[in-house]
Design a binder for these strands. Structure first.
Length: 549
RNA sequence: GCCCCCGUAGCUUAACGGAUAAAGCGCUAGCCUUCUAAGCUGGACAUAGAGGUUCGAUUCCUCUCGGGGGCACCA
């Protein structure tokens, strides 16, 4: 059930009916929600866009479309307004019927098949396993989780992945940091150099390991011991990250993809052979380079260093290949911080260069600034100055944290004010939305023992203004789901939730549901459908819908 | 130097090129002997600046000014 999409298709058919040649180059029919009732419930301005094609005035075009559209059951009136708007007014009886549909579909209300089963892989967070997930990862974690839900609802086959950078020098440094801390804790006098990670979590890891078989006889041996234990330490770190994300923050993954595995499985070599076969590699100053300049990049990039170590970029090319060629992904959506934007362009260039089918979408999320007492707190994982996402969720509450991160457009830099976060958590809009749900549950609980007044039908049907507004808002949920699945604007979901709550609260103050020993049957139905939709919205964001507050 | 993002109310943010720029916080005037006042109703306050494209620009283009972030044989 997606009214807007259906209307869109009907208008498109009408247009092709009038101008058959537009079948080849269909115009995009745009439908929006006008600001006030007097402009209708839905509106299209398509006529203006057709003026040059049709060589007629927008008003004449709008009239032609209106005639060709004929009778649409849901619409009781179509109005044409200069310069060429087609304004649609919904029929009350049709609106009332939608409640029954929502009640029948329940948690399926909002589903569609616009994805057509296409395989989409979402990669989010993928923070280096050299420390805990920090506040800076919050955007990606919650947005990725939410978009995955939305795309599932929209009929995509969704794979959620965390790419673990589990090789490279950073793993050595992690292991050395923990090792040194461990020995220092054992009372052995040794330095703790600057290149080691400074956070308190290193000490936590050190306390959790026990290395009776590794005695330090000689400081030169540190690398030998490090290499023997580094995979153990890495595993501990990764399992900590998994636990926090999955159990604490309720951010789900289908697969934790190992960078190392790309090498051990031979996929990197396979990709190198492919690149070589296409003549895209060359050797310069001992290193192996990928020719990217002739594909529009400002420079070529090293895949294998002169010392024969592979670069991070190489495994990334292999990972991209793995997704599109080996696993036949149709769409790859990567959430990264804006500090990786150079790399975002590069990965898309590789996609074009190797002519993979499907699309690579990189969602750049602008930085989150942490504010404390009006000052920005600079965070750095290496220096140990950061706030973990877990701490933040503990302090502010998970629902409020999720809502806050989701509320912002990825393109905007957002400030997270720690002083306000604690104080204002009660004022967080998430509570406003949850409160609407709690009120609904309370009404339903109270009505359990009461009798219903008959539901008026047919000619007796008359919806109050607040009731109509509410139903109109509820039927937009499937439209929103479909739109977000296509434009990834996850922040529109919390805003939509706030709108639903606002309209419900209005309805609540204007329309009494329970009167004395009876309740109004139709209004109870509306309350119930609102509950269903609110639950669907909140669950898409991974936020609770409490029965009591 | 080159590249990316952002400048909207006192603050934090909305608005797929559409109609009267929308919310929350803060400020302010009201509403609880009826379903949860974490609510509702009203008021004051904003598109950084200058051009351009368009029937129509917060949105697209150019420039200026301001803020953030990138430009490795690091990951």
């Amino acid at each position: 059930m997606n009214f807007k999409l259906n209307l869109q298709k009907k208008i498109e058919r009408a247009i092709v009916g009038i101008w058959p040649r537009l079948r080849e180059n269909p115009v995009v029919v745009d439908i929006n929600h006008p600001p006030e009732d007097k402009f209708g419930d839905y509106s299209s301005n398509i006529a203006m866009q057709l003026t040059s094609i049709a060589q007629q005035s927008p008003l004449a075009i709008a009239e032609a479309i209106k005639d060709k559209l004929g009778k649409v059951p849901a619409i009781n009136r179509i109005e044409i307004v200069p310069p060429g708007f087609l304004n649609f007014y919904l029929d009350d009886k049709w609106l009332a019927r939608q409640m029954g549909i929502i009640q029948k579909e329940k948690n399926k209300f909002g589903q569609s098949n616009i994805g057509g089963g296409r395989r989409v892989l979402l990669e989010y967070v993928s923070a280096n396993p050299t420390g805990p997930v920090t506040m800076a990862n919050g955007r990606g974690a919650f947005a990725g989780d939410t978009l995955a839900n939305i795309m599932k609802l929209s009929g995509y086959t969704v794979l959620r992945e965390y790419y673990m950078n589990d090789i490279g020098n950073q793993v050595n440094i992690l292991a050395e940091s923990v090792l040194r801390r461990y020995w220092i804790n054992q009372g052995i006098k040794m330095e703790y150099p600057d290149y080691c990670y400074q956070g308190e979590y290193i000490n936590d890891l050190a306390k959790r390991i026990n290395l009776p078989n590794y005695k330090l006889n000689n400081i030169e041996k540190i690398e030998v011991v490090r290499d023997k234990i580094k995979s153990r330490i890495l595993q501990k770190m990764i399992s900590d990250i998994k636990k926090v994300l999955e159990k604490k923050l309720i951010v789900h993954y289908d697969r934790w993809y190992s960078e190392k595995m790309l090498y051990t499985s031979g996929q990197v070599d396979q990709v190198l052979r492919l690149l070589k076969g296409r003549g895209l590699l060359y050797k310069f100053e001992g290193a192996i380079w990928l020719k990217m300049k002739k594909f529009g990049d400002s420079q070529d990039h090293v895949l294998i260093k002169a010392n024969e170590d592979p670069t991070y970029f190489l495994s990334e090319v292999a990972y991209l290949w793995n997704k599109f060629v080996k696993r036949k992904i149709n769409k790859y959506i990567l959430f990264v911080g804006a500090d990786h934007h150079g790399h975002a362009a590069r990965i898309q260039r590789v996609h074009r260069m190797l002519e993979f089918s499907g699309t690579t979408v990189v969602i750049l999320m602008q930085m989150v600034r942490l504010m404390r007492r009006g000052q920005e707190v600079k965070m750095s994982k290496r220096s140990g100055i950061f706030i973990t996402l877990e701490e933040l969720a503990d302090e502010v509450g998970l629902d409020a944290t999720r809502f806050f991160f989701l509320m912002h457009d990825f393109n905007t830099h957002m400030d997270f004010d720690m002083d306000l976060a604690r104080k204002k958590s009660k004022d967080n809009p998430v509570f406003y939305v949850q409160y609407a749900h709690a009120r609904i549950c309370s009404i339903m609980e109270k009505a359990k023992t009461l009798a219903a007044t008959p539901v008026p039908r047919g000619a007796n049907l008359e919806l109050a203004k607040a009731e109509k507004r509410l139903i109109k808002q509820l039927i937009r949920w499937p439209e929103l789901v479909a739109e977000v699945a296509q434009n990834y604007q996850v922040h529109r979901i919390p805003f939509f939730a706030i709108e639903v709550a606002t309209i419900f609260h209005e309805f609540y103050t204007q329309c009494q549901v329970i009167q004395g020993k009876q309740y109004n049957g139709r209004r109870m139905q509306l309350v119930n459908t609102t509950r269903i939709v609110l639950q669907n919205i909140l669950s898409s964001m991974g936020i609770n819908a409490p029965a009591k507050m």
